[in-house]
Design a protein around this nucleic acid. Structure first.
Length: 593
RNA sequence: GGUCGCAUAGCUCAGCUGGAUAGAGCAUCUGCCUUCUAAGCAGACGGUCGGAGGUUCGAAUCCUCCUGCGAUCACCA
């Protein structure tokens, strides 16, 4: 039990006993560093229940607590703030109770299942920095939800059909000369992406030519021959034309192979996959049903709509006049299909950029109006775009930061810094490379995950991601340092299996235990808010606290054996929490660096 | 134009349900490696929390208006 839980009831008891009033809740905050105390009770809100002078009330409650609660060693009141001093024994007991608990703060998996969708790329081009943010967020939120006690299915819907894929296919047919990943040595997704760019180039040239010949720009944009070819190819694909479908399969196959490599490097994975080519027709039956129920209405031309004006939104189309599905139809169908496939799922998280806020608002509203029980447990994990100083990234114009290149860059930077420091002379090349990758990716992942998902990120490739200060490598470094201490402690034969017989804590030890104590709350908070940033910031605070402790007190050089044991145990626990917290961010930690 | 989001130190960001003198990192400057890893620690410098009103004992936090930036409002996905 943490200190707030202990005190909360006692404060209510005090108010009841002294003033004969019922206090609905007690407001706590950590005591500011400039005052004596460990936790502060704010008296002001009590004034609504108890009339009087806040200082006097504070004094009276403080006195009651000191007398009736073992953990309370003393108190002081400043203005309306009751600062409570907690005795060291309380923190020692707490630490001993968690010191050998594995995965401290993690809640065991329950039957409450949730599906987390992330990544969901198009198959016409390689993954870029924007996808990296999506993947890291989705993966991390999935891990956090798991740690908070949910059962989690990680999934994605692969947008494997549509005009964008046909563009790459047309360009490959025209300019490809039969190139394959094998013949060029290129990653499949890169090869296909090159043709997407080639298409755009040819398309623009054709437009320019048409305009030069006197065609109106708008008309030229619609009638450029290569675009018509792509459209024609989409029709053939939809009709099941054997040759087209075969090419589509081949090229998508190349892309999947490429994606696999990127996902593996990035360290993300999925429990099951959905393909748009399988799901794009789903949802039509649901629309028909909803039409009967009056959720939707049909316009004269046969198109089907939903009227959301009463909910402050517009009318939204759910089926075209020719009866074909739109994006929304597909998403309705897919959501329902997912629950059919996994009946235990009671809620979904969609990791999709904030440009689609409106779409998801509408989607969730529609599912609600259709009456699905799980429709109020849907969440759009919306995040800001990653922009470059030059503006928005555009794949077709080639102005993107490629995911593979970026990861390789980060690894290289880690290598350079590491070589300069020269602490790993005895590592072999393979060990070094794996460590550099761990650090480089740690820097990248932490850099992206530490900021609030809602915020737009401006990424300047010229200014490299930091490796010092509030960064992944800084935290990894602290972990490695602790491992070094633990190795030494072991070789010194220090036995840390039993509780240390210590009665007093050093101020820094106490601060560390306090910080450890809130880890379980942070996990829950991060889960409720779908925010890896909370985990990142917590870990940073913990690590800062540890480094300060490390600098101020000697751990292995401590003359008192019991204190020495406690400090080693404390260090070990901090390392474990760092490792567990970073696991939630998808970042690994090294034994040395 | 309607709707949604964002705005905190020169830069990048914290700031939980309103609470004490608004916190970190980077950058700049000072100290600390013959003792557990200096990718570290300790300190200095740096803020009218975009602006104006309001609610409150108390507002960076809540409400209203305004400004700036971004997104969105397709029989595209």
């Amino acid at each position: 039990m943490n200190i707030q839980e202990v005190l909360s009831d006692k404060v209510k008891e005090a108010v009841k006993s002294i003033f004969d009033k019922e206090l609905p809740n007690v407001e706590f905050q950590p005591t500011r560093k400039d005052f004596e105390g460990d936790i502060t009770i704010v008296v002001f809100p009590m004034l609504r229940v108890v009339k009087g002078n806040p200082v006097q009330i504070g004094e009276q409650i403080g006195g009651y607590l000191e007398e009736h609660v073992d953990a309370v060693a003393g108190f002081n009141v400043i203005k309306g703030f009751l600062n409570i001093v907690i005795n060291d024994g309380f923190y020692l007991d707490f630490f001993n109770s968690i010191s050998s608990v594995e995965n401290f703060g993690f809640v065991k998996e329950s039957d409450d299942a949730v599906m987390v969708e992330y990544s969901s790329p198009n198959t016409n081009k390689p993954l870029h920095l924007g996808h990296i943010r999506n993947n890291l967020l989705g993966y991390s939120v999935a891990e956090i939800l798991k740690a908070s006690g949910k059962k989690v299915y990680k999934t994605q819907i692969i947008n494997d059909r549509g005009i964008h894929i046909c563009k790459s296919m047309v360009a490959w047919q025209k300019f490809g000369n039969g190139e394959t990943p094998a013949s060029t040595g290129l990653k499949g997704d890169k090869l296909v992406g090159n043709y997407y760019v080639a298409f755009d180039k040819a398309y623009k040239e054709q437009i320019a030519k048409l305009v030069a010949e006197g065609t109106d720009l708008k008309v030229a944009e619609k009638e450029a021959p290569i675009l018509l070819e792509a459209k024609d190819m989409l029709l053939k694909w939809e009709a099941g034309d054997a040759e087209t479908v075969a090419l589509w399969k081949t090229m998508n196959g190349w892309v999947y192979k490429g994606f696999e490599v990127t996902y593996k490097n990035l360290g993300v994975d999925f429990d099951n996959l959905y393909y748009e080519s399988d799901t794009y027709l789903l949802g039509k039956d649901v629309v028909a049903e909803g039409l009967k129920k009056g959720v939707f209405f049909k316009k004269e031309d046969g198109s089907v709509w939903i009227d959301l004006t009463e909910d402050g939104l517009d009318e939204k189309i759910v089926l075209r006049s020719d009866g074909t599905a739109v994006y929304m139809t597909q998403d309705i169908g897919t959501a329902i299909q997912r629950v059919k496939d996994h009946p235990d799922v009671n809620g979904m998280v969609y990791t999709v950029g904030n440009e689609q806020d409106y779409h998801f608002k509408v989607l969730f509203l529609i599912l609600q109006k259709l009456g699905f029980s799980w429709s109020n447990k849907l969440h759009h994990l919306s995040y800001g775009m990653v922009d470059l100083p030059s503006g928005k990234m555009k794949s077709r114009e080639g102005t993107v930061v490629d995911a593979d290149d970026l990861m390789a860059d980060m690894t290289r930077t880690a290598a350079t810094i590491s070589e300069e420091l020269g602490k790993l002379e005895d590592y072999n090349e393979e060990e070094k490379q794996s460590l550099y990758k761990m650090i480089g990716l740690g820097a990248l992942k932490y850099y992206i995950l530490k900021v609030d998902p809602k915020k737009r990120i401006l990424f300047d490739p010229e200014e490299s991601v930091d490796f010092q200060g509030n960064t992944g490598p800084f935290i990894q470094y602290t972990y490695a340092r602790i491992q070094s201490i633990l190795r030494k402690a072991e070789s010194m034969g220090i036995d840390i299996s039993k509780d240390a017989k210590v009665t007093e804590l050093h101020a820094k030890e106490k601060e560390l235990i306090k910080q450890l104590q809130i880890f379980p709350d942070i996990i829950q908070l991060a889960a409720e808010n779908y925010s890896p940033a909370l985990i990142a910031n917590y870990t940073y605070d913990l690590v800062k606290e540890f480094n300060s402790f490390y600098q101020q007190v000697s751990i292995l050089g401590e003359s008192d054996d019991e204190k020495k044991v406690l400090r080693v145990q404390l260090s070990k626990k901090v390392a474990e929490v760092i490792q567990d917290a970073f696991k939630l961010l998808g970042v690994e930690v090294p034994e040395r660096m």
